[in-house]
Design a protein around this nucleic acid. Sequence first.
DNA 1: TTGTATGCGTTATCAG
DNA 2: CTGATAACGCATACAA
Lengths: 341, 341
Amino acid sequence: MSATIKDIAKAAGVSISTVSRVLTSSQTVDQEKKERVMKAVRELNYIPNNNARNLRRTQSQTIMILVKTIENPFFQKIIHNISKVLMLAGYSVEIQNVGKSDDEIAIAAKEAKNTNPCGIVLLGGSFGYTEDNFKSIAVPCVLVTIKAGPSVNPDLYSSVIIDDVAEMRKSTEYLIGLGHRRIGCIYTKTQEADTPNTLRVKGYMQALEANGIAVEPQLIGTPLQGNQNGYEFGFNSMIRLMERNPDMTAVVAMSDVLAIGAAKAVVASGRRIPEDISIIGFDGTDEAEYWNPSLDTVVQPVDQFSQKTADALFQMLNEQKTSHVVLQCNLLNRGSCRPNP
Amino acid sequence: MSATIKDIAKAAGVSISTVSRVLTSSQTVDQEKKERVMKAVRELNYIPNNNARNLRRTQSQTIMILVKTIENPFFQKIIHNISKVLMLAGYSVEIQNVGKSDDEIAIAAKEAKNTNPCGIVLLGGSFGYTEDNFKSIAVPCVLVTIKAGPSVNPDLYSSVIIDDVAEMRKSTEYLIGLGHRRIGCIYTKTQEADTPNTLRVKGYMQALEANGIAVEPQLIGTPLQGNQNGYEFGFNSMIRLMERNPDMTAVVAMSDVLAIGAAKAVVASGRRIPEDISIIGFDGTDEAEYWNPSLDTVVQPVDQFSQKTADALFQMLNEQKTSHVVLQCNLLNRGSCRPNP
DNA sequence: TTGTATGCGTTATCAG
DNA sequence: CTGATAACGCATACAA
């Protein structure tokens, strides 16, 4: 068995409480004893047992990041950034992947008791949170890319999001501005109630309506079937859209992954981008930038997402204050969309 | 505060030991009492505290997955699969991301004491493990995609790998077989000692030598500078290779991400794939399949990786037996390589 | 400033 | 089959 606090105490010739004080720097300790303790820690290669700590502590120093579908490359960047910031601030970070079909709220509640984190970051998922959910979680939560329902008291949580409706509307209106009228919409129609995707479709529709263009169901994505991955789905969905709408000149996708799948379908069917079909994605991933040709996209501000999330978390932890920030996206024209002649 | 085992015991009218026995199904319990306990668990929404469990348990039921650079899409699939298998077997799974520049061995040792997992899966990283490392970790380890040094007693750990040298040699010889002679090699030359990349470069060289082609340094990748991502690096590296080797007709990349970056550079410089430059990646990611055009690649058997890793883990956990398996890859010709006229 | 003693929620041991 | 009870490793109120 490895060294415990007891061993350190013995080796340093002090009591375990003194060792604990040195390690947590909770109280001032005699300098000379402090050094003896540190020396023992080094020599015995002592690492405090987090289980015991979290069990005893009122507040652990662990942040849990719950990611809905870690496959999303956009999330990965955020995870990476947030982890770095939090670890620098002295927290240990744990990541949990939540399957597409898992109930992230239930898992959050479970994890909250399981690992006793002092804060939870919820990355992705749907908008279904209720007040009871937060009460059962009972740990400061920051929702990233999603919000709780409108009836939920906003003081119960923090959030960092974008305005999905407005951003997708912007994306669609960009195509409309280029003269497109028959604009397809690639998205995964799932069972779930309110996801960012749902909102984005709403934005797509709003854009059409505001410009006097009829919303046609046959231009809007197909339901997800089987367990296709994002690329596959985008591909199949696009094939179907092109078959049913020969006059379609442009397409908005709800994500870059879907956009790439759709773009591949365009090329596979012998059409060209952007000469025959204009296409724009959403997220701003490297994958879209390095695709051939580079795809236009609505860039989500990853760095801001990370920073604001960490900020919100610290604010909840230290000042018990919640916050809700809405970030701006940036439409990036890389040449995969062009005026409709 | 939420319900504890004590509350359940009281509610069910039994002792806490009985509750524990029901929950861990470690011993037979009277059927009627068992049901009373289960009912109380349900009604009080009881969730056992893992910290306390792991603290007390000789062997926790948690598997830790340590991933070196979670950004790698190949790793993500493995994580996903392994998690599923392990959770189905009743383990809880924790994922920890290890930064590119972090020392995964030190972190593994720390986590081993921190969270007291019953097993650790090490995904990626380098080949630098020593016997002391495993002794300090003191928890069954399965190394995935890497192995420990040759001097390390193989009974100290399990591993699931591919033969990086042979597979990359196969890839290179495929190009040679197509008549290519001036073949570039895209890889990130890092400080680290032995990574899969290093071995793959070795395979590339072996292929050339075995076929009487001189190995030329100017055809081999550039060192990584700054913090470019994989795509960016592949792109820049390829640009430089093309400048310095106008007669280069083909390129092998150490990963699909690098291959995509390189392919983008080919296109950006006005050349065509495969007419002007043949290109082949490594990994078999969806990204390479959905690129335009689809890229040839050496497919790593993701599903087998996941399955074998889980198998190896179970074998270590249940029978204290280590195993070392080497998987076969599959060269996939999708049309991004063609005979050199 | 320091040490002693108690308890966090569980599982394991032991005697019934 | 069951119920007390002692650990697990640590942080902290309390006493010194």
